[in-house]
Amino acid sequence: MSSNADQAAGLTAEQVMMRDVAREFTRAEVTPLANRLDPEKADIPRALIHKMGDLGFFGIMIPQAYGGLGLGAFEYCLVAEELAKGWMSVASLIARGNGFYRSIPGEGAARDAKIAAMAQGRYLGAAALSEPQTGSDLSSVACRARRDGDEWVITGNKYWCTFADGADFISVLCRIDDPDAPDGKAGTVSISVEKPQGELPKGVTGSSIPKIGYFGWKTWELRFEDVRAPVAPASDRGSAPGRAFQATAAALGLARAHTAARSIGLAQAALDHAIGYARERVQFGQPISDFQAIRFKIATMATEIEAARQLMYHTCRLLDGGAAATSETSMVKYFASEMSERVTSEALQILGGAGYTTLHPIERYWRDARLTKIFEGTSEIQQRIISDALLGKPTRR
């Protein structure tokens, strides 16, 4: 049943039910697993992925005609927030379905079957966008794709490709190798390279990148050496010919709302843990939750979380209404990620020395919150997008 707060926030009974299913799943399945596996830097088990697929988490935004739920960004972010309370990597994992179904290679009934499998978490994607010398400026990708009949031939390096080994295909952003292009600047293309689960594609070598967080899956540096993949049919979904970068940039709006949801989930989990600890921790003869310094910290943390959540709700409704919401998605990603680092750090401070141990999950929330300020466009990139919308592009002299 919806609470008064849920009703005031405009959540429908169906949305509340979906959120609560994700909340209970996180409590029973995700959090215990994260507490055990994150310290070991172990991978998310396939068994958990299959359970998530059975609940429909990978198909929230996949149309019903393909076996998905046919819902929107709002439901997607509701579920992501709850999953992130247990383990941000699990909350990120659902994007490997919802955010990837348009990139599935093939055509006809065979492709439809893959989309249906994706909605069940049985066929998932990964993205190879960034490169060793290309971070936020994806317009400068140097990985090349040469057309050879009905195939693309890919050569180059990619960086920050998470789940490259576990996915069923990798969507690779490439520069089209066309010596006849004006000024030598050919367009871009996204190429889906299929592969077996647990392996890299044939012709691809790589190594996992040592990270300080975001455990549960590996993030890869990859080298493509004459890797072949079919050219997508002309009627295929996706970007206009040569404009994959523009399509990728447009798709980042949803990804940024998703990052905001993950940031909020991390912050809420840290706050909840800090409140529980403050009520039990006794110093100077009384629970530290009686001290004004702690109470004011908690009040500020809760306020910032709720502000971010309401901005996320607003942004998701804009997206579901068909708006590009370019500024709003950058605003919510920027605000929520910055908030999440502050709140998780304050939660660690409330726990004192205990917070700086692996005996409590606060350190995991803190490490993962720090990443939200970097991926899907850094905080500085979001500030640039927002300021450009307000002021126009900077004057070049």
Rank of each mutant, 00 (worst) to 15 (best):
Q268K: 12
R46E: 14
A28L: 09
A110H: 10
Y277H: 14
R396D: 13
K85L: 07
R237I: 12
R256C: 00
D320G: 01
Y66M: 03
A80D: 01
R144V: 09
A126K: 12
E107F: 02
P233D: 05
V21I: 15
D137C: 04
P63Y: 01
D112M: 09
C316R: 04
A116D: 03
G149F: 06
A5H: 09
F291G: 00
H314L: 09
R122V: 08
A128F: 11
A347Q: 03
K85T: 03
T326Y: 05
Q197T: 13
D180E: 13
Q7D: 05
H258A: 11
K297H: 13
S89W: 05
R295V: 08
L348I: 15
C143V: 15
A113Q: 10
E81Y: 01
A269M: 06
F25K: 04
R364W: 10
R122W: 01
E82G: 05
E380S: 12
I212K: 11
I94A: 06
S239V: 03
E221V: 05
G99L: 09
V227N: 07
V16L: 07
V189L: 12
D165R: 15
G56A: 09
P230L: 12
P32C: 10
D150M: 06
R364C: 04
D388F: 11
I209M: 12
G353S: 14
M17T: 13
L359E: 10
A278V: 06
Q197I: 11
D150L: 12
H273G: 10
A270L: 00
A229E: 12
K195L: 09
A73N: 10
T329C: 15
R237A: 11
V90D: 04
M331L: 14
S140G: 13
A302F: 02
F284Q: 00
V141P: 08
R281C: 11
A255V: 06
S190N: 11
Y214W: 03
S140H: 05
R175N: 06
A34N: 12
A250Y: 07
K297A: 14
R102E: 14
T205D: 15
P201R: 08
L390F: 11
S3A: 03
G238K: 09
D180Y: 06
W152G: 05
E24F: 00
I154V: 15
A186H: 07
T378G: 00
H50D: 15
P230C: 04
I264V: 13
P182Y: 05
G392N: 10
D148F: 01
G72E: 00
R19L: 15
E14F: 01
E40G: 03
A261S: 12
M1G: 08
T31F: 06
W152A: 04
S140N: 06
S340P: 07
D54K: 12
D168F: 08
A240L: 13
G352F: 03
A247M: 09
Y101W: 15
A336C: 00
A117N: 12
L129N: 08
L359D: 09
L371V: 03
R147T: 10
Y123H: 14
R367Y: 10
I94M: 07
I191H: 02
R281A: 02
P63A: 02
E24W: 12
V16K: 07
T248A: 13
T303P: 01
L48R: 01
F74Y: 13
A325W: 03
K211M: 15
I294F: 08
F284S: 00
T188Q: 07
R36F: 07
D236F: 10
P233W: 02
I104M: 03
